[in-house]
Amino acid sequence: MKIEVAYILISIFLFLSGLFGVIIRKNLITLLVSTELMLNGVNLGLVSMDKMVGGVEGQVFALFMLTVAAAEVAVGLGLVVAIFRLRGYEGSSEITQLRD
C-alpha cells in the first residue's frame, strides 16, 4: 500500500467528517468549522493526486482554495456574529426562513 493512498483515504475521511458535521451539528460556528474541514479534506486530496501523477495544477488549485476559504471564513463569521447580534440565534434549527 503506497503512502499516497493513505493520504487519499485521510482526505476522504476529513471531507466526510466535515459533511456529517454540517448535517448533524446545529451550532453555526461548528457548521463553519465543519465546512473548513471539508475544504481542507479536498485540498489534501488535490495535493495527494498531484503527488501521485506528478503535476502542479492541483497544488495551484489548492492555493486558490485556501484563499477562498480564508475569505469565506471571514464573511461567514461576520454573518454569524451579525445574526447572533440581530436575532439572538446561535443554532441552525432556528433559521428556517428559507422555507417561507
Binding site: I23, I24, R25, S92, T96, L98, R99
Partner: peptide, 14 residues
C-alpha cells in the same frame, strides 16, 4: 420535505 433547515438541505444535496 421543504423544512427550511439547513442541515436537511445539505443532506438532500449529499
Amino acid at each position: 420535505i421543504q423544512t427550511g433547515l439547513l442541515n436537511n438541505y445539505v443532506a438532500f444535496l449529499l
